[in-house]
């Protein structure tokens, strides 16, 4: 596409008298349009975020009396909404972290192991292919299709009884739902994690793995000492991807934890009802809540950003 339009830009430039070319050197119509377009797209992405941010610092009156993207004035500025949102979401953040972090780490680790098995092990390709096909198929099963089987499954598994020792310590047995969420998200995230790691391991230097085998390392030791330490960039990709998915997922939490009044309610459940009341929506509170709920995913992006870029590039 770009290559098609470039020559046009060049020809218009070529038609210009050479006297003006000096002042306008390097400027061609294509480039101007490109940057205008890019600026437009940038605005398109940034305005909603900016609007959300300024709205969260406005009083309820300020929200009604000004344009969404206008910053708050000295009369309408308040941090009260952030305080309320944080109070409301605080326990939810903890609950979300309780399942999002283990589920992310476990699914990434298992995905890495599974991918190692279907790439570097000495199985015949005809045995590997069906396993890989199952993993790939797993990616395309929609969440909605498994909701009923999922709740049925967990109703037949007496997980709450097995975890009885926890409830004896005074922990609410609603936290069964958190454990269920960990297992469910691991199972559901495993296919995509495996496929992502697989493409990474397929491109690993095969001679290096063979060198390790000749050096006397077993399949398990090669994973532990060679493959795992070299998987950093792909772990960053998978951790960011999985954490964002699991943290933001509402569907499974609705099915497995159900109510925002539960002590085990994750942040997404509480956020869904935050600022909703009979008097109408408190937009400022909803915006503040949304930003608080999004902070952990942002933190993960920043923490693994460098490795993420490296992993995506491979």
């Amino acid at each position: 596409m770009n290559d098609d339009t470039r020559p046009d830009g060049d020809t218009t430039e070529a038609k210009r008298p050479s006297a003006t070319a000096g002042a306008l050197s390097g400027v061609d119509g294509y480039r101007v349009l490109l940057y205008l377009g890019l600026l437009g797209v940038l605005g398109f992405f940034l305005v909603p975020i900016e609007s959300g941010l300024v709205t969260s610092f406005k009083t309820s009156g300020g929200v009604g009396g000004s344009l969404p993207f206008a910053p708050p004035t000295s009369e309408t500025f308040t941090v009260e909404k952030w305080r309320i949102a944080f109070d409301a979401l605080g326990r939810g953040l903890v609950n979300s972290a309780l399942y999002a972090i283990p589920a992310t780490v476990i699914s990434a680790l298992l995905g890495s192991l599974a991918a190692y098995g279907i790439t570097q092990s000495s199985w015949k390709p005809r045995y590997k292919a069906p396993v890989l096909a199952l993993f790939v198929a797993g990616i395309f099963i929609p969440y909605q299709a498994v909701l009923v089987p999922l709740s049925q499954f967990w109703s037949t598994v007496p997980l709450g009884e097995w975890l009885g020792f926890l409830w004896a310590l005074g922990i609410s047995d609603d936290y069964t739902g958190i454990v269920e969420l960990v297992v469910t998200h691991v199972a559901y995230g495993l296919p995509i994690c495996t496929v992502l790691f697989r493409s990474y391991y397929k491109n690993m230097n095969e001679e290096m793995i063979e060198a390790a085998r000749l050096d006397g390392a077993s399949l398990r030791r090669i994973y532990r000492r060679i493959v795992l330490p070299l998987s950093g960039p792909m772990f960053a990709v998978v951790l960011i991807y999985q954490f964002t998915q699991i943290w933001n997922d509402l569907l499974f939490t609705l099915v497995l934890v159900q109510t925002e009044s539960s002590p085990a309610a994750p942040v997404v459940l509480i956020l869904a009802g935050l600022g909703e009341s009979l008097e109408g929506q408190d937009f400022a509170l909803r915006m503040a809540g949304a930003f608080i709920a999004a902070l952990p995913t942002l933190a993960v992006y920043i923490a693994f950003g460098e490795e993420f870029a490296e992993g995506v590039a491979t």
Partner: peptide
């Protein structure tokens, strides 16, 4: 006999050093 038990060392074309 598995490669790790053959007491053989190999030098590869790509050197195959462990980069980490």
């Amino acid at each position: 006999v598995k490669p790790q038990h053959r007491n053989i060392a190999m030098v590869f074309q790509s050197y195959a050093l462990y980069p980490h």
